[in-house]
Structure formats: structure tokens, C-alpha cells
Design a protein around this nucleic acid. Structure first.
Lengths: 344, 344
DNA sequence: CTGAAAGCGCTTACAG
DNA sequence: CTGAAAGCGCTTACAG
């Protein structure tokens, strides 16, 4: 591979001049520029990133850690982030955290060692090791989708509570009174906030909270399926189900089928998170969609600002609004079970 | 940040000794090892990757270029690749090529400049610039899913022709004679080979090829939708449709709905490529599934072998077999249209 | 078994 | 406007 010295020799100048030309510093005489350019072309010179990084202390690479890229939500986020970083001339080093296989803390350390100028993370949940690893990191961090509270880092997240509230209010508006929630884990901000929004809505509609309608899951398909099935088979089944994330929604759909019921005739289903092909699902899903593109872009520009400014962090999280997209998975409750909750 | 010199000072040894300890060379006296370890812990020392790379000429990073990570097929591939690289202690620099926004050639150059030890690519199609960029690359390359013929690089791909042949044979076995194909572009190996498999099957079953049943698309949903709709509205509609990739399948499903038909009663649909949630689709899709995990893993181990051995490349592509998963989107043709092709 | 020193390929004051 | 030289943080022969 060609080095700067080789180019300098070929052009009959010093390496300082080559460097100036490569970096577009306009201090070099036009005639020399031309000669250097020729030499670069002739030798096929490519600047060496490691040498540059070593000297400058910048890598031009941003690390990204997400839980699971097979989840279309994160796939789209990563896609948007990559495009935004590309535009800003950053490379993206991606770590996918197949839930638990590697601790996210270890991923942070690996990325730090490999060299990044900044980091975007969707944390799995409350995790002391991760907190410590992020604390030890000297580069700026931006949380996306989920955040670690009081970490002082920037964050771009949905207003999950408001979005969940609106979704459940919609179900109540259709006449449902027995509305179940398939909740995510409470040590994750998204899990916690979506449950809070559900409770807000019930309270606002004067619907008593029935413990039997609260199913805890771990944002996994199997959890969603098992919990939903158990609830459907119980003696106090719901007429509507609010699923707190996309993957659990799939589980719920399968459970409804397992139970021999059909949606939305027997039970309504509302999904937090949309799917790229929600309209070829059976049923076509009514869901809360998140502004994924804007989430990814804002996270990137926040991070790039921090990298450039080396400024202090933590303006508090940027909150985006979700949007309820009404398709065909929710109907008013079946007549014969209307108000069942009051009679039990 | 702590440097090796600082650790050496703290431990009262030379940096050569620190380096030996860090790299686990067992030439250092145990007592010194302990002292160095303490100093490392005390200073919070992290080795500097740029310096290491500059000295050793290895980055410990592999570049990955895929067309579109929102496509679940590529999302899963990337996921598997990341896990495999992680196990082998490589980082992954990912470029997503939102079809055409950036040329893949440019991505290759960017990755090369940033520093990679090897590259895994799913090329978009025939592309001289990409060929040139790959040719100029001094690091080993492995193609995945699609390949650039005669490039001399390794590749891991599906036996697309055989898989397509089997799929179409299945449709013919159900009694279909008017089987349409929604084909991908012919400058991509997957597009070409799947069409060839379709033709093979028709020939084997002595079914005449009807040009009107050949729809060209660009592996996009819109193409799939438009082409399918046009064909369904024509005066010689098919009784079965073979879609050559996942995204076009979605388009086809929507077109069938647009046309007021229902699948599989009015028309059968067979998809090349499965979806993670194909069984909550309406209809539940019968599809050709690819061994994605094994594809990603073989690509990684091939690449890592090459990187380690710096050996010569090009053993010819590794071919994996697809599998037909039968769900509910294919039925025998409707009675009233059986054999329509012969009467037209 | 350990250390002093060269050198990987750049950038950037500093002279001229 | 241009060049000689130092130095970024490592690794690795080479002495001792």
C-alpha cells in the first residue's frame, strides 16, 4: 500500500506538503497541488486511518448498541442512524446485544477499546455494570428509545406514557371496560412508562384496575403468547388487549388463535409499535407508531454536536410523540360480554 | 486517558514489560505481572487501538455492506454475522446501502480508508465501479447471498435455481398450469437464478412458457404490487404466483387484495424468502426459507480464515440449500379455471 | 527475564 | 509557501 512518504517522493515534495494537499489546506502553490494530486493518483495512495487517529485522537467512528436487530423497530433505527452518520462522514460500529448473550457493559468496553468518538445505546434495562461502563467512557453518549435515568447523558425517546394513555383511551372509547395490558418489564423505561399510561387512562375513564388484567412479560414473543393465553383461558378474560411492544403483539396474536378466538370479533388487540407489514397481518393491526426516522436522526445530530463541541451533556431527554394508527384489530366489545367486569 | 507509559511508571517497569503483560506473553516474572496488573487497574488503562493498528497492520474490524437492513432477510444476516464476529473478537463496521443512495463502490472505499481486515458484501447487482473498488482492496472479500461472478472472491449463497425449481414444481404438483413469476432483476444473481429455476420446472412439467406470466420487478414492494395487479387484471391471469423475493411478496399480497381476490381461494401465492412472522400474515405464507444463520456463519468463518491465512481466495461459491415451508397460501387451482391456458 | 530504541504513518508547530 | 523534526501509543527485534 502506498504511504504519504511514497507520494512525497513521487511528487518531489515533503510529506508536510502532501498532508496539506490531502487535507485541503489552501496554503500550497497550485502547481505543487497538481503535482501532488498526480502522485496520489499514480500511487493509489489512501490515507491511513490508524495513523490519523493516533495523531488526532479522533476515529471518525460512532458506536451503536441495540438489543436486537431482527426486531424491525431497531432495524429501522439502525438504518436511519447509519444513513445520518454516513452523511456526517462517520462510520458506524454496530453491536447487537442478543439479549443477555453479552452484557452491554462489555460491548461498551469493546467499542471504547476499538475506538469511537461517541456512542448511541438503547439500554436493555437497569444495569449497574452498564452504568459503570458508560461512566468510565470519555466519549459522549446518547440514549435512544430507552434511557438510564440520572445518567446525565442525552436521550431521544418517545413520550411512552402519553402514547399508551391515548391508545388505551381509544379502546375505552370503543366501549371496552375489561382492558388487559401485556406489560413489559418495569426496570426498562419503556415498560414502566407504557404501564403508567395504561393506568392513567383507566383512572381517567373511572375504570377500576383489575389485577388479573395485568400480565407481565419480558418483551418477548413467548412471554406474550403464554401470558395472553393464560388470561384468555381464565374465568375473567378481557374484551381488549393492549400489548406494550411489537414482539409481544405477535405472541398475543398467536395466543388468540391458540385459544380458538378471533380478533377483532372476540377480542380487540392494540399494539404498541407498528410493523412494516402490519396491513398484511391477520388482523390488520391497529397500533401506536413511533417516529423512528426522526428518533434516529435526532440522536445522531445530538451526538455529533456533542462530539464537535465536547460540550457538557444532559439537557434532559428529547421526547417525541407517538401516533395511533387505526386499522382493523379493534372493535367495540361483543354484546354478551359488555360490562362483564361490573358483574363479576 | 491512561497510556502504557503511565502504567510503566506506576509499576516501575519499562513499557516493553507492560506490553508483554497486556498481550499475555509469558516471559514476565510473576511478581512483575502482579505489579503491572495493579498499575493497570489503578490507572484504568485501556490499550489504544489506533496505535496497535498502526504498528501491527491489523484493525480487528470487519466491514459489512448490505443493501437494506429493514429487509428482515438482511437484518437477520447482519445479526448472525455480528454474533459470529463478536465470538472471534472482531468488531463490525456496517454500511447499509439504501439502494442507490450511495454507490457500493464508495462504501467499499470508505471502509478501506477507515481500516478493515476483511469485507462481507451482498452486492446490489452488476456494477463496474464496485468490481473496481473490490479489486483495489487489499483485504479479503466474501460475498453473501449474491455474488459478482468471476471476481475471484469467496461467496456463500443459496442454490437459488434448485430452490426455485422445487417451489414451482410444488405449484405444478397442486395442478397449476398457469403459474406466473414475479422475477427480480436479471443483473443480480439471485434474480437470474430464480427465474432459471422457474423455467426449469415448467420445462420439466411440459408446461409452455407464457410470456404474459413473466413479470419483471426490481425486488421492491411497489414493483411487486404494480406488476401483480396488472397481471391479475389482464385477460390471461395466472392461477398461481411465484414471487422471487420477500419484499415483492408483500406487494403481491396487496395487489391480490386490490384486485378484490383472495388468496389462496382465487390465486395461490408462493414466496421466495420467509418472514419472521409469516404465520400471522393473511394468508399464512408458503415460502422458500433460506438457512440464514448458516449463511452468515459460513461467510464469517470463510473470511476469518482468509484473514488469518492471507491465503489465496476463490474456491468457488459455497452453495446452501433452501427449504420449502408449506403453510396455507397455496391450493389447487379453482375448478372453473383449470387448464385455461390450453383453451386461450 | 527486562529495558532502550526504532518505527508504524500521520499532523503540526516551528523555522526559513 | 515549504521542509525538517517531533511525537501520537504502541510492538518488537536487539542487547544485556
Amino acid at each position: 500500500v502506498a504511504t504519504m512518504t511514497m507520494v512525497a517522493d513521487a511528487a518531489g515534495v515533503s510529506i508536510a506538503t502532501v498532508s496539506a494537499v490531502v487535507n485541503g489546506k489552501d496554503v500550497v502553490r497550485p502547481a505543487l497541488i497538481a503535482r501532488v494530486r498526480e502522485a496520489i493518483a499514480a500511487t493509489g495512495y489512501q490515507p491511513n486511518a490508524a495513523a490519523r487517529t493516533l495523531k488526532l485522537g479522533r476515529t471518525g467512528v460512532v458506536g451503536v448498541i441495540v438489543p436486537d436487530i431482527a426486531n424491525p423497530f431497531f432495524a429501522e433505527i439502525v438504518s436511519v442512524i447509519q444513513a445520518a452518520l454516513d452523511r456526517a462522514d462517520y462510520g458506524m460500529m454496530l453491536c447487537v446485544n442478543a439479549e443477555g448473550s453479552e452484557s452491554q457493559a462489555r460491548q461498551v468496553e469493546l467499542l471504547a477499546r476499538r475506538g469511537i468518538d461517541g456512542l448511541i445505546v438503547a439500554p436493555l434495562g437497569e444495569d449497574q455494570a452498564l452504568r459503570a461502563a458508560l461512566g468510565a467512557l470519555s466519549q459522549p453518549v446518547v440514549f435512544i428509545d430507552r434511557l438510564l435515568e440520572d445518567s446525565g447523558a442525552d436521550a431521544v425517546v418517545l413520550d411512552n406514557r402519553a402514547a399508551a394513555r391515548e391508545a388505551v383511551r381509544y379502546l375505552a372509547g370503543l366501549g371496552h371496560r375489561r382492558i388487559a395490558i401485556l406489560s413489559g418489564p418495569l426496570d426498562v423505561t419503556t415498560g414502566r412508562d407504557r404501564l403508567a399510561g395504561y393506568q392513567d387512562a383507566l383512572r381517567a375513564m373511572d375504570i377500576a384496575v383489575d389485577e388479573r388484567l395485568l400480565c407481565m412479560g419480558n418483551f418477548t414473543e413467548n412471554d406474550g403468547r403464554a401470558a395472553t393465553l393464560a388470561m384468555l383461558m381464565s374465568d375473567a378474560p378481557p374484551t381488549a388487549l393492549f400489548s406494550a411492544n411489537n414482539v409481544m403483539t405477535i405472541g398475543a396474536m398467536k395466543a388468540i388463535r391458540d385459544a380458538g378466538l378471533s380478533c377483532p370479533q372476540d377480542i380487540s388487540l392494540l399494539s404498541f409499535d407498528d410493523f412494516p407489514w402490519a396491513d398484511v397481518f391477520s388482523p390488520e393491526l391497529t397500533s401506536v407508531v413511533q417516529p423512528v426516522a426522526s428518533m434516529g436522526e435526532q440522536a445522531c445530530s445530538l451526538l455529533i454536536d456533542r462530539i464537535g463541541a465536547r460540550s457538557s451533556e444532559g439537557q434532559g431527554p428529547v421526547m417525541l410523540q407517538g401516533q395511533l394508527v387505526i386499522r382493523k384489530s379493534c372493535l367495540p366489545p361483543p354484546r354478551d360480554r359488555l360490562g362483564a367486569s361490573n358483574e363479576t
